[in-house]
């Protein structure tokens, strides 16, 4: 296990390094941010001065090494527009996104698992067909469309839900949470549900497929033949087998949900990192974009590691760091 983790950390370093090259050069060849954020009174001399101040007049490779040197000391540079370290901006916004993503994950599992189990147990009933149709729709419809329709329906037409914003928050361990206030929850519901739809569809389909396979397995028949209660069979004997593929796929999916909550955050004006990224791209705030992308890569690496560990806990046949190919 330890050996496995060390190996993965080394791999992660390489991935991170390659990403810094790609991201840095990719972002730094587009446009000139100074022209965007410099005020209209700024003349050519002023522009040149600003460019020099930001170090943008130096060759790209030199800029890269400065960037890399800073990175090794834990600095990802200051945001052009906010003037404060990009990383602290990200961490300031991250709790909102994490809250949204985790709520979406909880919804996906909390709704998806029971629906999938139901559809797997009674595949030929009308309700099951409806569940499967729902999962198909949730998977295929574009997220932005669903978000807009939800705002139209529940906020504009019915007036039940606030259309945008985060609502009241409470501070828990230094992070703002809207989950714990009624108003915050009210604001959270629609974006979290919208964000959860794709994961929910995946959970439903995987659960149903797994159920169809597992409930006919001999070990389930054997469990029944031993008189074990149906509820216990479902909750332990079947569920543990079901969760293996779900954890694997959801683990991958979840990184994407955090990183690219962009669409949902934009639609619902949720003040998370996704919204921040869109704003940063709009004004070509290079350090912020680079910092965010590197942060995302880092998060993916960590998530994948967690999924592998969780996977080995769920499936005893998997040994981490073994010689399996």
């Amino acid at each position: 296990m330890t050996e496995f983790i060390i190996k993965r950390v080394l791999q992660a370093m390489i991935v991170l390094f390659v990403m810094t090259v790609l991201v840095f050069f990719g972002v730094n060849v587009i446009g000139n941010p100074v022209y965007i954020f410099a005020s209209s009174e700024c003349d050519q001399a002023c522009l040149t001065k600003t460019i020099a101040e930001l170090g943008l007049d130096r060759p790209l490779w030199e800029q890269y090494f400065v960037f890399l040197g800073n990175l090794l000391q834990g600095h990802l540079g200051n945001s052009f527009t906010h003037g404060i370290p990009a990383l602290s901006l990200i961490f300031e916004r991250l709790p909102a996104t994490l809250e949204l993503a985790f709520c979406a994950l909880a919804l996906a599992l909390g709704i998806g698992l029971p629906l999938g189990v139901w559809a797997g147990l009674r595949p030929d009933t009308f309700i099951s067909r409806c569940i499967m149709a729902f999962s198909m729709i949730a998977f295929s419809l574009p997220v932005f469309w669903i978000g807009l329709i939800m705002i139209l329906t529940f906020s504009v037409q019915l007036g039940w839900m606030p259309a945008i914003g985060r609502g009241d928050t409470v501070e828990v361990f230094g992070a703002d949470l809207s989950l714990l206030t009624p108003d915050g929850l009210h604001h959270l519901a629609m974006p979290a549900f919208t964000l959860s739809l794709i994961m929910m569809a995946i959970v439903i389909r995987l659960t149903r497929a797994g159920m169809r396979e597992v409930i006919f397995a001999d070990y389930i028949k054997f469990a029944r033949a031993n008189g074990i209660r149906e509820r216990r069979i479902l909750s332990t004997h079947v569920m543990k087998n079901l969760l293996i593929p779900i954890v694997t796929v959801l683990g991958m999916e979840f990184g994407g949900v955090i990183a690219f909550a962009v669409v949902v955050e934009s639609i619902f004006s949720w003040p998370g990192v996704g919204k921040m990224l869109i704003d940063a791209i709009g004004v070509l705030d290079r350090p912020l974009i680079v910092a965010y992308l590197i942060f995302v890569v880092f998060m993916f690496v960590v998530l994948n590691l967690l999924v592998d560990i969780l996977y080995s806990l769920l499936d005893p046949r998997v040994r981490l760091g073994g010689n399996q190919t």
């Binding site: 001999d218 070990y219 074990i228 543990k240 293996i244």
Partner: peptide
């Protein structure tokens, strides 16, 4: 190979029974 649940310890399976 198929009668025992692959993801549960022998102890759990016997205890459940």
């Amino acid at each position: 190979m198929m009668t025992l649940n692959p993801v549960l310890r022998i102890e759990t399976q016997m205890r459940d029974a």
